[in-house]
């Protein structure tokens, strides 16, 4: 099977004045297949988010290649990226910050549809439907991000991300800022959406227990490198690397 997303030898080095160059991501390669739920775990600063930012091209790569759906997107810019964002969307860690404070949630969701060719009215109606799909009432389309709770905002963010029907949804610590009950609801929503739309999830997380329940495969990152890869249950039960053991001990 052709992988949906393939990252080969991804490296990101940050240069800042007066300091030594810092390699946040060091020769990371992985691939994920259609319909897969892949998790990347690791402590803060291990380079998970940098990997994701490179994959979504919000950050330029220092070296390596990224292939999405058989297309090399490593050096895509502007218009080309818009095409790519049809296939790949992202949900961010802080739900209330991921919407423009001066625009309603409905506006935020509709924007994505409008940018991809929908009419204004049509987009608004579709946004309401999407909110419904994500378990929110239509009225939420008229609310501002500061007027709703974190969990509700994250549902809206998911609605925005799936609006244009992406194949790959990247969840960058999408549940970390929520409390456990809300976390569970969001995961249930994601499971439901996956069944309906057959998306793949790239799940960035630091909670290994959550990954164990939710994902098919896990990559463990440490100091910018992938140190371990496998089925979550296996990795938790028989960690091969010292760091993974440490990580598991910390949580369980």
């Amino acid at each position: 099977m052709e992988p949906l997303l393939k990252a080969e030898h991804l490296t990101k080095t940050f240069h800042s004045q007066g300091r030594e160059a810092y390699t946040a991501v060091d020769d990371v390669s992985f691939s994920m297949f259609p319909g897969e739920k892949l998790a990347i775990i690791g402590e803060s600063g291990s380079g998970k988010t940098t990997v994701v930012n490179m994959v979504t091209r919000l950050l330029d790569v220092t070296s390596g290649t990224i292939t999405l759906d058989g297309e090399d997107i490593t050096h895509y810019r502007g218009r080309q990226m818009k095409k790519i964002y049809r296939k790949m969307q992202m949900v961010f860690q802080t739900p209330s910050d991921s919407f423009d404070p001066r625009r309603t949630l409905g506006d935020g969701i509709a924007e994505s549809l409008i940018n991809h060719g929908a009419g204004k009215k049509e987009a608004m109606l579709q946004a309401e439907d999407l909110l419904g799909l994500c378990g929110l009432e239509k009225e939420f389309a008229k609310r501002y991000p500061h007027e709703v709770s974190g969990g509700q905002c994250q549902r809206a963010a998911i609605a925005r991300a799936i609006a244009i029907g992406p194949k790959l949804l990247i969840l960058d610590e999408a549940t970390s800022a929520l409390d456990v009950t809300v976390q569970k609801d969001i995961l249930e929503l994601l499971t439901k959406l996956k069944e309906e739309r057959n998306m793949s999830y790239l799940f960035i997380c630091h909670d290994i227990a959550l990954v164990q329940n939710f994902c098919d495969r896990v990559l463990v990152m440490y100091h910018g490198k992938i140190v371990e890869e496998g089925v979550p249950d296996e990795v938790v039960r028989h960690p091969r690397e010292a760091y993974t053991k440490n990580l598991i001990d910390c949580i369980l």
């Binding site: 818009k82 860690q93 802080t94 910050d97 935020g108 994505s112 940018n115 609006a163 244009i164």
Partner: peptide, 21 residues
């Protein structure tokens, strides 16, 4: 800000990012 990254992901061009957000 995160929302600007989100807006970029929803396919906003640079010009749109500037005048809408």
């Amino acid at each position: 800000t995160v929302y600007l990254r989100a807006a970029r992901l929803s396919g906003c061009s640079t010009w749109k990012l500037i005048y809408r957000h």
